[in-house]
Each structure stands twice: as C-alpha cells, then as structure tokens.
Design a protein around this nucleic acid. Structure first.
Lengths: 166, 166
DNA sequence: GGTTGCGCTGGAGTGCACTCCACCGTGCAG
DNA sequence: CTGCACGGTGGAGTGCACTCCAGCGCAACC
C-alpha cells in the first residue's frame, strides 16, 4: 500500500537512509523539491492544520502550492518560513507585526535593512521581557521564602500574614 | 504613629472633618490604616479602574471595603495583594490559577504548603519560559546576522535568499 | 459500493482578559 | 443652582489568535 501516490508526477520518495518509516514521512519530491502534505507540515512545524490554513488566509504565508486535487503541498521554503514564524510568535510578536515582516520579506532584497531593524527591535523587546521576568521571578522566590519562614515558625506562634509581595 | 510631617499629601490619624489637599495623594488614614480611592489604587498598582472592578467581580480580590457613599476604599493589604497579582499576571499566570491561589490564601494558614507548591511550580514555569525565550532569541540574532551578511556581499552578487531560520 | 482518511471551503464560534457604555449618585467649586 | 469630577452598576462589546463545523471532493481499501 505504500508505493507512491500516483498523482502529480512523483519522481521519488525521500526517506532518511536507515529509517524505513513508510507510514510517516511519505514526503515526496517533485523536480527535486520536497513537498509536505498539510498533515506533515503540521507535524513538522507544530502548528495545527487550522492554524496553517488561517496563516495562509491572513497572508502570513504566501499562497501555498496545490496539487491536481487542490490540496496544499508545502515546500521546504514554506516549512522554513514557518520556523521563523514560530520563533517570532513564541517570543511574543503579534501577528500584525509578523505580517509586516512577511510583507517586507516578499518585497525583495531592498527591504533587508528594514527587516534587520524590525528584528533587532524585537530582539530588544525579548531582552526586556526576559529582564522583566527575572525581576518578577525574584519576587515570587521571595514570596516562597516568606511562606517557608512562616512554616518554620513554631506552631501557634505569630499568626501574622502580612506582606504580599516584597 | 503620629505627627507625621506630610511632604505631599496630608494624612490625618483621625477621620478628617472634610476634604483637604485634594490635589495629590489625598490618602487618608482612618484608625491608622491607609485607604486608597479607586483612582489612587489604579495609579498605585497600574491596573485600570475597570480591571480593578473586574478583579473584584471575579473574586480575585475579596470584596473591597466601601465608604458611606458606597465607594471603594482599598486598603494597604489590597494594594499589596494587587502587587502579587501583577507579579503573577506579568509572568504569565492565567487568571484561573491566580484565582486558585487567591482561594488558598483566603482559606488560611493550613494552605501555605499548597501555596508554596503553586508558586514553586510557577517559578519553574517562568524559568522554562526564560530559557525558551533565550533560545528563540538566539535564532533571531542569527537571522539578523544572516541579513547583515547578505548586505555585506558586494552588490549584485549571489541573490540567494534561503534559510529562514537557522 | 460503502467506509475510511485526508483534505477543501466559508463562516461561525471560542476563550481569555479585559474594556466600554449608558445611566445614575455624591459632593464640592463657582 | 449648576457643573464637574469621580465613582457606582449591569451588561454588552472588543481584540487577539485561533478553533470548530457542516458539507463537500477524492482516492484507497474491503
């Protein structure tokens, strides 16, 4: 049942040597370019199918190639771009800004300095966020210590429950 | 506990007959306890008035004291608790979990070890998040460097735009 | 031929965390 | 007395980022 889906003029199956996982990774190259089904793209990138479609709808992905049956075939380039998207998303960049970045990227080489500016600004934002988290984390740790101190006090003494955050 | 020379904002120990010095920090102590108007509480904590009311509605704050006219007067304790809330919120704790923490806190001393557990779990979550941010930040920095390298290539050579994320 | 699996579409719905609104009350300044 | 700032309420609305759904197509397998 494996073989190759006889659609779309398949040339060969790309499987890592040593792994004969025919069930998963029926990844297929067309003219030397690897293509991913939506399911594979989802698994590869960690985005849900719906999210991938959503991203395409809003233009965060450029229109994905289709096979004869109208089904999406994600390219390596798409997967790579999705990796970038995940990275930006997971560091808290809002979709609107990712969209801006996507548009710059599509606009061509002359936007590279803009892209650098955008990413450097975001990098700084991440830096700030980390610093903030560290600071707040300190407060949490102090609170934990406060509780531990309370627990350490001999039972029945000193019923004070005071400072919430130090 | 008396005779406090007020630099800005007069604080009276006994309930003042009327309003005085309304401009800044008209914070008032009644029986030694400082009270904050909603506006002051908002300014002090950085939450909006609506958010403060919202937090009270959902039970993240216990019912705030009211004056004769039915207006809220936040206590120092409330402000302290709000500091804790801000800390947890800003480190990404969802409201549902803050609510759980609030309930534990209200339930009394016997929940302290639960509270410690909750906070330590959250502390770990923050730690993980920071590590993740650092990792992703690395990718962003590499991408920036990639772009800078592209810019450094003599004009017109090597039009490759490949790897999205390294 | 029927069922299963995967994918398609447009549009509606969800969950979270607020945020806004209309309308009302209170109290002091002018 | 009037106006204004501030605050009250219940309930509706917002923005974001998905997520779900009905109804359909296509290919494979039993």
């Amino acid at each position: 049942m494996d073989g190759k889906p006889a659609t779309e003029g398949v040339t060969r199956i790309v499987t890592p040597p040593g792994r004969l996982d025919l069930e998963h990774a029926p990844r297929v190259t067309i003219g030397g370019v690897t293509a991913y089904t939506p399911g594979q793209a989802a698994e590869e990138t960690g985005f849900s199918l719906d999210t991938l479609r959503y991203y395409e709808r809003i233009g965060l992905l450029e229109p994905i190639e289709r096979n004869a049956a109208g089904q999406r075939r994600f390219s390596d380039g798409d997967i790579g771009w999705l990796g970038m998207v995940r990275c930006l998303r997971d560091t808290g960049m809002p979709i609107a800004e990712m969209l801006r970045f996507a548009e710059l990227t599509r606009a061509g080489e002359h936007t590279i300095s803009d892209r650098i500016a955008l990413l450097e600004a975001h990098d700084q934002a991440v830096e700030d966020k980390i610093a903030d988290l560290r600071r707040q984390q300190g407060a949490i740790k102090r609170k934990v210590q406060f509780y531990k101190d309370v627990l350490a006090i001999p039972d029945g003494l000193c019923e004070r429950e005071g400072e919430h955050v130090s």
